[in-house]
């Protein structure tokens, strides 16, 4: 151990290795770069053209999609029997407005709940309500970690014309809001709002927010739905997430298939994934390897630690100079 107490070249090596070791540990602990801790699988690219709310906008055709896997909700009753397997997510932001386009396969559009016992196709996105809080462990949030939900329903914009299509009506005596109690009570379900802005803090607590600031529209094609949801980067109140270029946002998805009598907990859901709000657009040269993987700070940190540890061991105990094991320094 005399090597440790002198200021020999060996000591200087030790100090250098110790510094490298501290640096490596620092990489791991302090999350030095935005892409250090987890890899994002969704990216919201900066767009030079306004995508608008049209789900068939040309902007989406040029934007790459990420497929997010969905599974049947089976945490709490009523549970789903499954159905929609994945949703393709594309996102851009333009003029400080976040646009997300969701597409999924559903050949049977369910756009009307005018018949008793029918249910509409729908899709929703869910964000933790306060950006810096922990991500809730399960969907629909928890009491101390609420989620903000944007839900688009296919039947919301339906202008319903009921009995005249299916029967004959002599007269409706009273038709003002008093005779639609849900409307008179201000229930958002009775409105034609295309997208509802909601908050939840656990199963069964879903509540509309006072700030209905989400815009959206849906369009059904031959194979399925395309829905665009949009919201300005900043939103009033504290129950919604704030977005900014460079942010990493947690988001989860849910899809309902009306044909399968999906509604409420009977839905297909994804786990929380991360959405990066990138500063560049998709067409610009990437500053990260083309494989879209982030710079492997993790791997670099581990390699640095390994080198440092090996170096430390060698420095302390010295290189073995007795390879042949005869207790005599080897002859070179």
């Amino acid at each position: 151990m005399t090597a440790l107490t002198s200021t020999s070249p060996r000591t200087r090596r030790l100090i250098a290795i110790g510094l490298v070791l501290m640096l490596a540990i620092g990489f791991r602990i302090f999350d030095v770069t935005p892409a250090a801790a987890q890899s994002s699988i969704l990216t919201s690219w900066s767009s030079t053209t306004d995508p608008g709310l049209d789900p068939n906008s040309a902007v989406w055709a040029d934007t790459p999609a990420t497929s997010v896997q969905l599974t049947a909700q089976n945490v709490t009753p009523p549970m789903s029997t499954g159905g929609i397997r994945a949703v393709n997510v594309r996102s851009v932001h333009y003029n400080n407005m976040l646009y997300v386009n969701l597409q999924w396969a559903d050949t049977t559009p369910d756009m009307s709940t005018a018949s008793v016992g029918t249910f509409a196709d729908a899709v929703a996105m869910q964000f933790p309500s306060v950006a810096a809080s922990s991500v809730p462990a399960i969907c629909m949030g928890q009491a101390d970690s609420a989620v903000n939900i944007w839900q688009w329903r296919a039947d919301a914009q339906e202008g319903v014309s009921l009995m005249p299509d299916r029967g004959y009506v002599d007269l409706y005596q009273f038709t003002d809001d008093l005779y639609y109690p849900a409307r008179a009570a201000g229930n958002i379900q009775s409105s034609t709002a295309a997208v509802q802005n909601l908050i939840a803090g656990g199963f069964g607590t879903l509540t509309p927010l006072n700030e209905q600031v989400i815009a959206g529209a849906g369009s059904h094609g031959a194979l399925g739905w395309s829905v665009t949801l949009a919201r300005p980067f900043t939103a009033p109140g504290e129950n919604q997430p704030a977005f900014a270029t460079g942010d990493m946002v947690d988001v989860a998805f849910a899809v309902w298939d009306g044909t399968n009598k999906d509604r409420n907990g009977q839905k297909s859901v994804s786990a929380f994934v991360r959405l990066e709000i990138a500063g560049n657009d998709f067409a610009a040269p990437p500053t990260v390897p083309a494989s879209d993987a982030p710079f492997p700070w993790d791997t670099l940190a581990l390699i640095t630690i390994a080198v440092a540890v090996v170096g430390l061991v060698l420095a302390v105990f010295g290189r073995p100079s007795d390879w042949d094991g005869d207790d005599q320094p080897d002859q070179t």
């Binding site: 339906e158 202008g159 319903v160 014309s161 009921l162 038709t175 809001d177 409307r183 201000g186 958002i188 009775s190 409105s191 034609t192 709002a193 509309p208 006072n210 700030e211 209905q212």
Partner: peptide, 10 residues
Amino acid sequence: TATWEPVRLL
């Protein structure tokens, strides 16, 4: 203080 507009469906 809801801000959505209930619209007559029929």
